[in-house]
Design a binder for these strands. Structure first.
Lengths: 316, 316
DNA sequence: CTGAAAGCGCTAACAC
DNA sequence: GTGTTAGCGCTTTCAG
């Protein structure tokens, strides 16, 4: 492949002149500009991005740390990011971590080794203390609320959304309400839903909290656990519409009616929820992703709240 | 940030020695190795990846061209890629094109400017003629069958899968069968399903082919078009379970029973299809993604077929 | 085993 | 306007 000095030689100019025409620098005579362009076209030359990025100390590439892809919530966030990145001419790397703290750290290291200008953390498994040091090497934006001055964030008030959903359930006469979460108390989100539960219902019977729920199968498992116990809940808040769909399936299989025998509410307004007419708490994650991207390339440390909305269908 | 020569200076060695310990070259005395490592640790030094990649002429990064993300089919493919990339220490860039040929070409250009070692094309909007020239700059693998010698491919025999599904419908007594597609005849996949239709049913009434179907809403629109006509089909093959779910919803709204009044079969075994008990043609796209990745980093031009399977549930 | 030196391909300050 | 040159931060011959 030809490089810039080949072009310079063939066009009879110096590399700086070639660089100038490449970068649309106005201080080039029309004659040379044309001559250079001709050689560039003839040789079908393209500047080497690695060399450009190396010297510019910028890559116009960002990374998105996400535990999993092929999961509606994270894919919505990613979708938001991609919407914006295309408009702004940025590239995006997907950095899956499976919630492995070491893997997460090695992704953050891409900031340090200059591969990435910034990183968006959709969900984390490291403490802030482990993450903050990397802000020295590039912008980091997270998708949960934090008041840390070095971190921008685009977040939903999850606590409020949980309280809202629980109160809605309570208004409809439910006192025995169970919920599912993805992770245990190591997760911020889990802590918030537990606090919200206490706020609305008081004590949480341990059996009313089922963890490790990601898929429809997990939802069925949760429903089995919940509905086979003697303290059967009358309503379930599921962390995702797929999980909610699993609960729905299991309950239907038992001959239970929804919502009369069991109310169900899910999350993220996914297709399966629309299909089964499940109510849902829509956290509008596409917007969160878009906003996070904007903060990232603006190198902003702002804290931006995105509104959520509860969509009521037939399941509560 | 410190660089390699800072380390060399502080450790009292040359940059080559530092480079050697960085790359685990055995020809370094234990004493110097330790001295260098001490300085590296003290300064928390990390080599600059851009510089490394520039000189090595390799990035260990691949790109995945996909029209959309947040679409089950493409997200499954991406999921397969990510599964493997993590294992092999590769990074992956997501390159959304929205089926814009120019955008697609500019993604391929990342091969030429050395940002990427290889590119996987999950779906394309350019002709082969426009794509092939880029194989000169890196490996390209596609997710559809092609006999082009410069292209590896991991593919499903879509024609066979369409014929299978149509024949299954015919076996069940359906003669008036409609289908939906994402794009028009500019798409390879659309051409195949039309050919399969001809093979199984003969002439295709134009009204039986509805295009531009991606979402549940599109499915409802398709169903409206199909069921309000005088030549009402008795079965619909939908290009995705979300579209199938839309058809299901519209039909249910009309009071039609599935499958008695209308049979429905979808694609890709998505959650919404499981929830609604829709039959589906599962193309096993995660496997396709994994296989495509393996071909990519193996710089292989093999043609690998991935089997599909038809999952029969209650909707046909 | 070790180091000097020649790049990888480009940008930008500086002089003319 | 234009060319020279000094890097960006690293790997890898090539001598020794």
């Amino acid at each position: 492949m030809a490089n810039i000095s080949d072009i310079a030689k063939l066009a009879g100019v110096s590399v700086s002149t070639v660089s100038r025409v490449l970068n649309h620098n106005p201080y080039v005579s029309e004659a040379k500009r044309i001559a250079v362009q001709r050689v560039i076209d003839e040789l079908d030359y393209t500047p080497n991005r690695l060399a450009v990025d190396l010297i510019r100390q910028k890559t116009r590439t960002i990374g998105v740390i996400m535990p999993y892809n092929n999961n509606q919530a994270f894919d919505q966030l990613l979708h938001g990011v991609l919407n914006r990145s295309v408009e702004h001419g940025y590239s995006v790397m997907v950095l899956p971590t499976r919630y492995d703290p070491a893997q997460e750290l090695s992704c953050l290291a891409m900031l340090k080794n200059k591969q990435l200008d910034g990183i968006m953390i959709t969900s984390r498994s490291n403490d802030w203390d482990a993450i903050i040091p990397y802000t020295k090497y590039g912008t980091i934006v997270v998708c949960e609320y934090t008041d840390h001055p070095d971190l921008g964030c685009a977040y939903i008030d999850r606590y409020a959304s949980f309280v809202d959903a629980f109160q809605l359930l309570r208004t409809r006469g439910h006192e025995r309400v169970a919920f599912t979460t993805a992770r245990g108390i190591e997760s911020n989100s889990t802590q918030l839903i537990i606090r919200a539960y206490h706020h609305v219902f008081g004590d949480l019977p341990p059996a009313y909290h089922v963890t490790d729920c990601y898929s429809m199968d997990d939802g069925e498992r949760a429903a089995r656990l919940l509905l086979d116990s003697d303290l059967k809940p009358t309503a379930v808040y599921a962390n995702g519409d797929e999980v909610a769909a699993g609960v729905y399936r299991y309950a239907s299989g038992l001959g239970l009616r929804v919502p009369e025998d069991l109310a169900i509410i899910g999350q993220e307004n996914q297709p399966v929820g629309i299909g089964l007419q499940l109510s849902t708490v829509d956290h509008q994650l596409i917007q969160v992703g878009e906003q996070a991207f904007d903060l990232l390339i603006g190198e902003s440390k702002d804290k931006v709240e995105i509104p959520y909305r509860i969509i009521t269908r037939q399941s509560i």
